[in-house]
């Protein structure tokens, strides 16, 4: 059973050091801390809960096997995010190359099969995932970091390696595209 930490006071860097020293089971705490943010980003990027879980799992395994190359263990989350980001982009490239859409990935079916969701929530989820799927990858990831993970543009610059002005433009275009696509669902006039 992985150890439970009484608080979040133990910094990531300390846990990374323990894992590298051979206390492998300590890695579970890093997984617990960062999996939600990683999963949310993967979900927004690929639109499929199953694929997002697989990508997140694969990212965290790769992060473990490459932990020695994590130059700033205090920022394990940002470092593992970069692994996930590349995996998501590769996944989307493969999916486009094979002309596989989100319908084939099952996200819409998953939404329909969730008894906890109202009809309106199901329709909203479907509309949002379809809309996100139509955004260019660069706009989509910038949008998700800004409005789902609520990062600052400075933090996004560090994560994505693009200038603040470029990121602002991507977020702006993504907002406008999403508004347009979702307005159609609501029957709004543009």
């Amino acid at each position: 059973m992985p150890p439970e930490y009484p608080s979040k006071d133990v910094p990531d860097a300390q846990i990374v050091a323990r894992v590298l020293a051979g206390e492998r089971e300590e890695y579970a705490e890093l997984v617990r801390r960062h999996q939600a943010a990683l999963y949310r980003h993967a979900l927004g990027m690929v639109g499929s809960p199953d694929a997002a879980a697989d990508l997140t799992q694969e990212c965290l395994i790769r992060a473990f096997t490459r932990l020695q190359s994590c130059n700033d263990p205090a920022r394990f989350g940002a470092w593992s995010f970069r692994i996930l980001r590349n995996s998501c982009l590769d996944y989307l490239k493969d999916r486009r190359r094979q002309a596989v859409g989100i319908e084939d990935e099952g996200v819409l079916g998953v939404a329909n099969g969730d008894p906890e969701l109202s009809l309106e929530q199901r329709e909203l989820r479907e509309a949002v995932f379809r809309a996100l799927d139509q955004l260019p990858d660069s706009q989509k990831e910038a949008f998700l970091l800004k409005h789902v993970e609520e990062l600052s543009y400075e933090e996004m610059t560090e994560q994505l390696g693009a200038s603040t002005s470029a990121l602002k433009m991507r977020v702006k275009r993504a907002r406008e595209a999403l508004q347009t696509l979702l307005a159609v669902r609501r029957g709004e006039e543009l």
Partner: peptide
Amino acid sequence: DTKSALDTV
């Protein structure tokens, strides 16, 4: 709407 939809998963 977007955030709400993602939160349903």
